[in-house]
Design a protein around this nucleic acid. Structure first.
Lengths: 131, 131
DNA sequence: TGACTATATGAGTATTTGTTCATATACGAG
DNA sequence: CTCGTATATGAACAAATACTCATATAGTCA
């Protein structure tokens, strides 16, 4: 079981010939909590509705009503997603009378979104030329 | 109920006072196909197992067996996720005898991942100082 | 050929998720 | 107070998901 003197990471043996060299290059793993956090962030961006909400909030502050109108969705559906985004601190809101305005609240995540959007437009351009 | 009149660009009316100025700032929307593509990309990164797979493949080429060992997961679970990632062209593979080696195949998505990882470590540092 | 190995895959399943519907809450104007 | 409006929320439900298990596939080696 113990092969050498060093730390060996055997989590589970699925084949006899475990490539030790490969495992040595992978001793450094992302901490569990970091992985969960990353997945959580990307999951927030992994839904078309939330993407559209954040995209529009990247332009300007908007109330629930306007977002529902722009997205062509029910107020309830939008509100549920806003709660989701707010729990992750990706958006925040302010009240003005009956109206509640939302805006983005996480520059890093918005940066990820913007980067992905920029790339998608580049890809579109290239494909437009190619095909 | 039905207010006699005209509605110009409204997808759905959730409240009477639709803020026209807000809607004017949101005339430009991401194309449906782009939104779906973005969501698809982020969804690939929205799962801890796939994150760890891509993270390890960012270091070096690995076979299914080694990945399973490093992640402490069954060969089947890893293989299913690799198929998922391959369908999205985020990874590609090569065969060497019985062994199939995987590596990453989408610089842009790996860039998104790296950016998110870098940020998370910065945040950790700051929090480490604060608390 | 046949045993052995690494990987792929279909079915089944428990869990998560995004929406709808009905209703609750909070605020402003009478 | 009551009424009207904007938003929030709980329950329910269908669809998507990530795993396990059993088995299939494809290569090596004797």
């Amino acid at each position: 079981m113990s092969v050498g003197g060093k730390q060996m990471l055997e989590a589970q043996q699925c084949c006899n010939e475990v490539h030790q060299e490969a495992l040595n290059d992978c001793t450094e793993q992302l901490p569990e909590v970091v992985v969960e956090r990353l997945a959580e962030t990307f999951k927030a961006l992994a839904d078309p509705t939330r993407l559209r909400i954040l995209y529009n909030l990247s332009k300007r502050e908007l109330c629930v009503c306007d977002l529902a109108s722009v997205l062509g969705m029910t107020q309830s559906a939008v509100s549920h997603q806003l709660r989701y985004l707010k729990a992750l601190r990706l958006v925040k809101n302010r009240r003005d009378g009956n109206t509640i305005y939302y805006r983005h609240d996480d520059a890093h995540t918005m940066g990820l979104l913007q980067m992905a959007i920029d790339h998608s437009s580049h890809v579109s351009d290239e494909q437009g030329v190619m095909e």
